[in-house]
Design a protein around this nucleic acid. Structure first.
Length: 499
RNA sequence: GGCGCUAUCGUCUAGCCCGGUUUAGGACGCGUCCCUCUCACGGACGAAACAUGGGUUCAAAUCCCGUUAGCGCCA
């Protein structure tokens, strides 16, 4: 069967992702989902989610929920899926078992598939035999031509049977939208098992049946599925189904260039949500991992990516997941997203992830102000707890030497702090803001020769008194945020430290 | 082991299909400088790559073949 004409299929394509709920929703799945989504949206098609949960021993409901929630969080809405029935449901493989049985029977009846009674031990022995003879290890075809009577006899004896597909001994070529032509020698594969029994179809079989019944036009999936493709095509042809168009995406790799997995650290999306990454940043980052627009633009909201998206511009080689770049994207989105949206995300984040501290000020507005203050410094929301703990906690602690500006001593710094304290005390609570502080301090500095060309002599200890840190926002910003009372309290404590 | 996929700065990549316009472009990260009380932001500059061998050609990152390496799948 020839490949369909690629150009004809670009109208209203139907694409799907088929995640198996056997683990958390991770970056690989998310990226595949994203590319399917982009392709569907760009070409006015449908994006379908189908859950592959026939592996009952490993599938879990909470993982299915995690997948669906993850997609929603990223803003990748599907047109048909387990919780959004369309015309092609059900969308959970565990609810489609009788469908697979029907097609399995069909293949058996037509003699395109057959029962195989070989035990694992026999199979192993056969394989070793072939290797010993210098042959390619594949199924011998021993049960290929059993008579009806032999089969019935075997079943009567209670023997276990799997279902194998008769593999043609020809070569098979298919066109991949990203890689071009790929050729396999089917003779090397041998008769594959397509089901463990009439009620237990294997992956390659159920995928083919579902893709056909769900009218899938384009199969866009990870590169690790390339070796499955010829097997699936043979099953399609046995069943008389048309061939969808294939596109195999490059892998997302860990720092050691192997498939990105748990051993590389956090790969689950929920982990990044917990850290306070923005979904917009993750989507943008993921889109650029393996795809590139015509120009050199990098910061692109989802809508713009959809407009620009083209499978032809997808990279062939794998891409290492680089957290630095993700951080940069997140940082950018922290700057460009509307303030209200950032606040909204931040609030949601705080609801779930606020540490159990003795807070200086638990007012939500106070938290927002801290976010405003630190937004250029953080990679993601949870950095706030690390960078701004001194603004959140009641008690701060730091070594008194930190107060000393270069070339100064306890006495001179104590004097600086007293000057600062006097000045701040002279300002009314309501006027204690950055602008006022700035101008008042400028006047003080200009009028005192010891500060004039050495502003750090007063500004450094003031800032340390308020933050207790080597690095922090400026003292005026901090004073405004902390308020007069707390500011005075912290300066007084610093003066005491120096006595 | 068999089969398959891939190969441009440390990383993500542009350029490759349609060979000359390339002193190989951008971004992250890194370094230096400016701004500056510190950090961050912002600005300027910089270091940094066509895996390798051969072929085709007047000309190859770009086309062809081999090698090597990495990865994936199956066993």
């Amino acid at each position: 069967m020839d490949d369909p004409k690629i150009s004809q299929q670009l109208f209203a394509p139907r694409v799907r992702i088929a995640p198996s709920p056997t683990g958390w929703f991770h970056f690989g799945t998310a990226r595949t989902a994203l590319f399917n989504y982009l392709f569907a949206r760009k070409n006015g098609g449908k994006f379908i989610v189908r859950i592959e949960d026939t592996d009952k021993t490993r599938s879990e409901k909470r993982f299915e929920e995690d997948i669906l929630n993850g997609l929603k969080w990223l803003g990748l809405y599907w047109d048909e899926g387990p919780d959004k029935e369309g015309d092609y449901g059900p969308y959970r493989q565990s609810e489609r078992l009788e469908i697979y049985t029907k097609y399995l029977k069909q293949l058996l009846d037509e003699g395109k598939a057959y029962y195989c009674f070989c035990t694992p031990e026999e199979l192993k022995a056969q394989k070793e035999d072939m290797i010993a003879q210098g042959l390619i290890p594949k199924y011998s075809g021993k049960c290929r031509n059993l008579t009806k009577e032999q089969i019935e006899q075997n079943f009567r004896e209670g023997k276990n049977a799997v279902i194998r597909l008769k593999m043609p001994n020809t070569k098979l070529k298919f066109t991949d939208l990203i890689r071009g032509e790929v050729e396999f020698d089917l003779d090397l594969i041998g008769d594959i098992v397509i089901a463990k029994s009439l009620k237990e179809p294997l992956y390659n079989f159920s995928v083919v049946v579902d893709d056909y019944l769900m009218n899938i036009t384009h199969v866009i999936r990870g590169e690790d599925h390339i070796p499955n493709t010829p097997k699936q095509i043979v099953i399609q042809e046995a069943l008389g189904f048309p061939r969808p168009i294939y596109a195999h995406l490059p892998m997302i790799l860990g720092p050691d260039r192997s498939k990105f997995s748990k051993r590389h650290g956090a790969t689950a999306l929920v982990e990044y949500k917990k850290l306070g990454y923005l979904p917009e940043a993750i989507v943008n980052f993921l889109a650029l991992l393996g795809w590139h627009p015509r120009n050199d633009k990098e910061i692109m909201p989802l809508e713009e990516i959809i407009q620009e998206f083209d499978l032809k511009r997808v990279q062939k080689s794998g891409a290492i997941f680089n957290i630095n770049k993700l951080n940069w994207f997140n940082h950018q989105y922290l700057k460009i997203l509307p303030k209200e949206k950032i606040y909204q995300y931040f609030e949601e984040f705080l609801k779930e992830n606020k540490p159990n501290w003795d807070y200086l000020n638990n007012n939500p507005n106070y938290f927002k102000k801290i976010l405003d203050l630190e937004i250029t410094r953080i990679n993601h929301f949870s950095d706030i707890f690390e960078f701004s703990d001194y603004l959140l906690k009641k008690e701060i602690d730091y070594p008194s030497e930190l107060l000393i500006w270069k070339g100064e001593n306890n006495l001179s710094i104590k004097k600086s702090l007293e000057d600062a304290l006097n000045l701040i005390q002279s300002i009314s609570e309501n006027d204690l803001n950055q602008i006022n502080l700035q101008s008042k301090f400028n006047k003080l500095i200009d009028s005192d020769p010891s500060y004039q060309n050495n502003r750090g002599k007063i500004l450094w200890p003031l800032r340390v008194a308020l933050s207790g840190k080597q690095a922090s926002p400026g003292p005026f910003e901090l004073a405004e945020l902390l308020g007069k009372q707390e500011t005075i309290k912290r300066i007084t404590r610093a003066i005491k430290k120096l006595s």
